[in-house]
Write a protein that binds this DNA or RNA. Structure first.
Length: 936
RNA sequence: GGGCGCGUAGCUCAGUGGUAGAGCACUGUGUUGACAUCGCAGGGGUCGCAGGUUCAAUCCCUGCCGCGCCCACCA
């Protein structure tokens, strides 16, 4: 697109990122640059890790999205149809909690008081209000997402996909209702999955209680960390091989407080040498106990659910405990045992306690009906895909984590007792009894007839078929568990009235990760067979934190393979966590979080991005020190000033993409160096070595382009010089600068775009420029050898001058000894540069003896007379140091060459190189020795 | 109890079977018209410890020590 506003303008003296970042981003987005029309281009697709829609950008997002943006921008510059699929996640629990808290703070009616419909409306309102915060912040970071196709996990398309998947899994027998123990969060009043439970080690107690034996012959001591669950004990278990208790197995004991007789059973789960060796079995409140219960049907162990959903004690407890919190119940049980003289002892005990990762309260194993996905079956293909390499992890070691989890995967509980999310597409109605009555089962949700369908109309069709003989009207009502009194005629419920059949929808919503798992294909239009889907699925690489391999990556693999038959992405790049400068995990409670937006304000988005990139080494967390960001802000300033210098010397961008024809070695050299830099960038990015990419850019820009090339061009551009050479230099410098900007653009998009326009009148933005083809850039080895020699000479002179305290401004003369014809030619050709950078010039007369600075550079010795100025002792020390270094190295090489094993077994090239190095070092040492001798 | 990762210059980290690197910090020095958010130069490491393989080990193998993370049902 033509943009007259982009005509070259003077580069300001001060670099101010805030001045242009927002403007540049708006331009890109307005001009459709993030996804230009490229009908024939090869697609490449990355899906964003959808952030919480109502959240805000934290430093982890900054890392994650910088890396993705680099890959996308690099591919876009290569001409690919690079699509970064973007969108946000509805984040069920998190969002519902936020809105509930806001209602509470505002003194508004609570969620339950206002009812489901009104509450869900409130959440949508909150989304409308704050949903653009994070997407705006991603823009500030510079993320070049395909915003034109932004998605949301609860938009119509995703909703359709979720429903489709749910119904299909159900039909495939891979999704089912089951009554079993779940991790119950009493604060949130919902089940959560295994992954949402975090175990914390706490200093608790182990209580030892005595249970009287039925026959009065004594007591059996049990140990527990959870006395309140005693009220639900159904058995006591001992190890079958434990001689202490062998005679008790099969007998019964009396459960105090409850006064219930419970069996004593043997199960190898019990460890004889832990606690008392006897374990109380509370099947409804402990996962292990539930397994024991299932293994011992003969014992008729009762399963007693002791608690209400909020973890207060239920009516299944003895009256004295009902309504107590579980904490109060624990105290009372202990006190009551003590009063009965049945508390044997209590000892401190450090143990793991499950907490809800969102609510922070202790999780209760709880017996409920929930929906489960048969994850073990879906895991098979997901495991195979990584085992056979269709998807690979980078770094590769993460595949072990993935395998280990999937190999041991448990059924995935996907229902949540929440209101914000995808409501489960299952409808229930009364079951038909054999004698033709309607049976509404209100005490056991699962005993009713269930219709799973993609929408109510289809469920209704199924219902009509099921109830076809009833001749009744079918009516949709709210859940009878909640509102039956208002909605349902008791006579209807009892089946007395057959003219109406009430059906109701499942009240639960799905785990947020259920929809996230569909993200790579549902965002592309699936289940419709869209062009987008055909073109952009499977994706290329997924970039994400290792912490959500289980939550998200594994589940995308499972669902992707099941529903599309293909892996959702070929590579999973896992980066680490961003920690503070001391290596501490950032957390709000610790107060050590850093806000990426503040950093952007302070240093610019480019500096933050470059920092993240440079520090992203595979397999390591990032310790973020603000000093690093400052350093890369300085790097941006350096780049800015280099461009400003170029501009002031008549160097501009906008020339052809192919390198200009150049004669001068310095220009031929820099062209080759650009090629080497691009090669290094390509290799780094292809291998996901973000640090390597940053290194290649940094060292080229600063140490090669600025420190040497620009300095070396100064004499070439000087007034009164060779006009043709100056022109060649301007065009090469402009070309090199342009390529440098393009190579830097993926990581520093803002400053590079800004300079791109300031340096030339362009008909296109840099974001759509062409990435250089490294292979097409000529590397002139002779030019490289010459400039390397030149750099070596200048460095040598500078170093010697400093060490001998020669005043920086002093110009010295030099003569050479033993210089080859090539060296003499080079000296002549580069005289102006040498004079400028090293402050030395050839002597018109031969060097006399006496005080002299002597430098060995290659085969030549440079002699710089310094009569009267030189500190002879210092010069002697300097030469001796250089000589001994060369000699030491020569000896090491000689040793290697003298070793029979080396000569016989090392590669011929290695031997050849060792010989050459040895000879070079020997020559250098000799020349230095001679120089020392001359010094006297 | 399993699994993974880390231990290289004061700090943060790269790296390679054959002379140890970067950034920052530090020291000295410099206003040579791009840049003091800078230039130039310099000091600084027995590459955690001990064995083994090898002509050669910081790199490969084994063990140990220290640190971190993940998974796991010890009531």
């Amino acid at each position: 697109m033509t943009n007259p506003a982009n005509a070259p303008t003077l580069i300001e003296k001060t670099f101010d990122p805030a001045e242009h970042e927002a403007r540049r981003y708006a331009d890109w987005e307005a001009n459709g640059c993030f996804r230009p029309a490229r009908p024939d281009a090869e697609p490449i697709t990355i899906v964003i890790t959808p952030p919480n829609d109502t959240g805000s950008l934290h430093i982890g997002h900054a890392l994650d999205n910088t890396l993705q943006d680099i890959l996308i921008r690099w591919r876009r510059l290569q001409g690919r149809d690079a699509r970064w699929v973007v969108g946000t996640d509805h984040a069920g629990i998190a969002t519902q909690m936020v809105v509930e808290r806001q209602l509470a703070e505002a003194g508004a009616p609570s969620r339950t008081a206002m009812g489901r419909e009104a509450f869900v409306e409130k959440v949508w309102a909150w989304k409308a209000e704050s949903g653009s915060t994070i997407t705006g912040q991603l823009r500030r970071l510079g993320a070049s997402c395909d915003w034109a196709n932004e998605r949301f996990t609860m938009d119509d398309g995703l909703n359709a996909a979720v429903t489709k998947v749910f119904v299909q899994l159900f039909k495939d027998g891979l999704l089912y209702r089951d009554k079993r123990l779940v991790n119950w969060d009493p604060k949130l009043g919902t089940a959560i999955s295994d992954l949402e439970v975090e175990y914390r080690e706490i200093d608790g107690h182990m209580w030892h209680f005595r249970y009287p034996l039925e026959d009065g012959s004594g007591f059996l001591a049990v140990a527990t960390t959870r006395p309140e669950t005693i009220l639900g004990d159904g058995a006591v278990a001992v190890n079958p091989d434990d001689p202490r208790y062998a005679h008790l197995v099969g007998k019964r004991c009396r459960l105090p407080l409850v006064d219930r007789l419970i069996p004593i059973i043997a199960d190898s789960y019990v460890e004889a040498d832990f606690g008392s060796g006897a374990v109380k079995i509370t099947a409804a409140h402990d996962f292990n106990d539930f397994e024991v219960y299932k293994r011992h049907p003969e014992a008729n162990i009762p399963v007693i659910n002791l608690m209400n959903p909020d973890a207060t004690m239920a009516d299944t407890c003895p009256p004295a405990y009902r309504g107590l919190t579980r904490e109060a119940a624990r105290q009372k049980v202990v006190a009551d045992f003590d009063a009965l003289g049945l508390l044997e002892k209590v000892e401190p005990h450090r143990h793991q306690v499950p907490y809800g990762d969102r609510s922070g309260v202790v999780i209760e194993p709880y017996l409920t009906d929930q929906w489960y996905v048969d994850a073990a079956t879906l895991a098979g293909p997901a495991l195979a895909a990584v085992r056979d390499g269709r998807t690979r992890f980078v770094p590769a070691s993460w595949d072990k984590t993935y395998f280990n989890w999937l190999d041991n995967i448990q059924p995935w509980c996907v229902s949540r007792q929440l209101w914000w999310g995808h409501r489960i597409p299952a409808w229930y109605g009364p079951s038909l009894t054999e004698d033709g009555f309607l049976n509404y089962n209100l005490s056991d949700y699962s005993k009713n007839k269930m219709f799973v369908a993609e929408n109510y109309e289809e469920a209704l069709i199924e219902a009509i078929a099921y109830y076809r003989n009833m001749n009744s009207e079918i009516l949709l009502v709210e859940n009878p568990f909640v509102s039956m009194n208002s909605n349902l005629n008791p006579d209807v419920l009892s089946g007395k009235i057959k003219s109406q059949i009430h059906i109701w929808r499942d009240t639960d919503v799905l785990d947020t990760w259920f929809s996230s798992a569909l993200w790579p294909f549902a965002t592309l239009g699936w289940p419709e067979q869209t062009d987008d889907f055909a073109c952009h699925y499977p994706g290329d690489v997924l970039v994400t934190g290792f912490d959500i391999i289980f939550f998200w990556v594994a589940r995308m693999m499972m669902q992707g393979l099941h529903f599309t038959g293909e892996v959702p992405f070929h590579t999973v790049y896992c980066h680490g966590l961003v920690r503070d400068a001391k290596g501490q995990k950032m957390s709000k409670s610790k107060g050590n979080t850093v806000d990426p937006l503040t950093l952007i304000d302070r240093y610019g988005a480019d500096a933050l991005r470059f920092t993240m990139t440079a520090m992203e080494t595979q397999g390591r967390d990032i310790k973020l020190d603000e000093k690093r960001i400052e350093g890369y802000r300085n790097f941006a300033t350096k780049l800015w000033n280099a461009a400003r210098f170029a501009q002031s010397n008549g160097i501009s961008g906008g020339g052809p993409e192919t390198a200009p024809e150049a004669q001068h070695p310095i220009n031929r050299w820099i062209i080759g160096e650009v090629g080497a830099m691009v090669t290094a960038c390509d290799a780094a990015l292809e291998g996901f070595r973000f640090d390597g990419y940053a290194d290649a850019l940094y060292s080229f820009t600063w140490n090669i382009f600025c420190d040497w090339y620009l300095e070396l061009t100064k004499p070439l551009l000087a007034d009164g010089g060779d006009a043709a050479l100056a022109e060649e230099t301007r065009s090469v410098a402009g070309w090199a600068l342009d390529r440098m900007l393009v190579a830097l653009h993926p990581v520093m998009p803002f400053i590079t775009e800004e300079l791109w326009h300031k340096l030339a009148s362009r008909d296109h933005d840099l974001i759509l420029a062409a990435w250089p083809d490294a292979a097409a850039i000529v590397r002139d080895e002779a030019a490289k050898a010459e400039v390397d020699w030149l750099i070596g000479l200048v460095s040598e002179v500078r170093s010697a001058r400093t060490e001998l305290n020669v005043p920086p401004s002093a110009r010295l003369g030099y003569a050479t000894e033993g210089a080859s014809a090539v060296t003499l030619e080079r000296l002549a050709a580069n005289a102006p540069a040498i004079e400028r950078l090293a402050r030395i010039a050839p002597l018109s007369e031969p060097a006399n003896t006496g005080g002299r600075l002597q430098l060995v550079v290659g085969e030549a010795v440079f002699v710089l007379p310094l009569e009267g100025v030189i500190d002879l002792a210092a010069e002697r020390a300097r030469l001796e140091k250089a000589r001994s270094a060369a000699e030491k190295e020569r000896e090491s090489l000689a040793g290697r060459l003298a070793s029979p094993g080396f000569v016989e077994r090392a590669k011929p090239e290695a031997i050849e190189k060792a010989r050459a190095d040895h000879d070079a070092r020997a020559g250098e040492a000799d020349r230095l020795a001679a120089a020392l001798a001359r010094l006297g």
